[in-house]
Amino acid sequence: MDTTWMDIAAARGALACGLLVAGVVVVALLIGAFVLGARIRRREPRPPRPEEQPRLPAEGPVHEVREHREPAEVPKSDQRVTPHDLPAHGNIPSRTSPSQERPRWSEGGSGSFGSGGT
């Protein structure tokens, strides 16, 4: 009696059983990930309701202000001046310039180094 076909069938059955077990493990991991994600989501704060959303100010939208500013002058000294020696510890605010014209480059040049201008 030849039992070769039984050996082949047994090997294929073990392979099928292994694939079935691997599939069950993958499905179990996916279900576990879904449950873990649902738990984490339950701990997060709820999204804001429409009445809790930010609103525009009564005077309308806030726009950008463009103005030319002048820096504060560094005090003259014979010694080296460090930031902590400056008034307000180096955080001197700038002030609005009397002239609000934007500085322009000279005519005929782009203002960049090596632009090929005259």
Results as ranks from 00 to 15, higher is better:
Thr3Cys: 09
Arg42Phe: 07
Ser112Asn: 10
Gly114His: 05
Ser112Arg: 13
Ile92Gly: 00
Pro57Glu: 02
Gly60Cys: 08
Arg43Met: 11
Ser110Lys: 13
Thr118His: 15
Met1Gln: 11
Trp105His: 15
Arg43Pro: 03
Arg102Ser: 06
Arg12Phe: 12
Ala38Cys: 06
Leu30Gly: 08
Ala72Trp: 08
Gly13Ile: 07
Thr4Ala: 14
Val35Met: 10
Val81Phe: 00
Pro75Arg: 04
Ser97Tyr: 01
Pro71Ile: 03
Thr82Trp: 11
Val26Glu: 06
His84Lys: 12
Leu36His: 03
Leu86Ile: 03
Val21Thr: 09
Gly117Pro: 00
Arg41Asp: 14
Gly90Asp: 01
Ala16Cys: 10
Val27Gln: 04
Pro54Val: 03
Pro75Trp: 01
Gly109Ser: 15
Val65Asp: 10
Gly18Pro: 00
Asp85Ile: 01
Ser77Arg: 09
Pro98Asp: 01
Ala28Ser: 10
Ala10Trp: 06
Lys76Leu: 13
Asp2Met: 09
Ala16Ser: 12
Pro45Glu: 10
Ala10Cys: 02
Glu107Val: 15
Ser99Trp: 00
Met6Asn: 10
Pro71Cys: 07
Leu20Tyr: 04
Arg104Ala: 15
Gly60Ser: 06
Arg39Glu: 07
Leu30Ser: 03
Ile31Gly: 01
Met6Leu: 15
Asp2Phe: 10
Gly90His: 04
Pro57Ser: 11
Ile31Gln: 04
His89Val: 02
Gln79Arg: 15
Met6Asp: 08
Pro83Glu: 11
Ala28Cys: 06
Ala88His: 11
Ser110Gly: 06
Val27Tyr: 02
Gly109Ile: 15
Gly90Arg: 01
Ser77Cys: 03
Gly90Tyr: 04
Arg102Gly: 07
Ala58Thr: 14
Arg43Leu: 10
Arg95Ser: 12
Thr96Tyr: 00
Gly117His: 08
Gly111Arg: 03
Glu67Met: 14
Thr118Gly: 15
Gln79His: 13
His84Pro: 00
Met6Gly: 03
Phe34Gln: 11
Val21Asn: 03
Pro61Phe: 07
Arg49Val: 07
Ser115Arg: 04
Ala22Phe: 05
Pro103Glu: 03
Gly23Ile: 01
Gly37Asp: 09
Ser110Asn: 09
Asp7Ile: 07
Pro48Gly: 04
Glu107Gly: 06
Glu70His: 12
Ala28Gln: 01
Val27Ala: 12
Trp5Lys: 13
Val35Leu: 14
Glu101Met: 09
Gly109Trp: 11
Gly13Val: 05
Thr3Gly: 07
Val26Asn: 03
His84Thr: 13
Val74Leu: 11
Gln100Gly: 07
Ser99Pro: 00
Gly60Leu: 09
Glu44Met: 14
Leu20Pro: 02
Ser94His: 09
Arg66Asn: 09
Ala22Gly: 06
Met6Pro: 00
Ile31Val: 14
Ser77Lys: 01
Gly18Asp: 14
Val27Met: 12
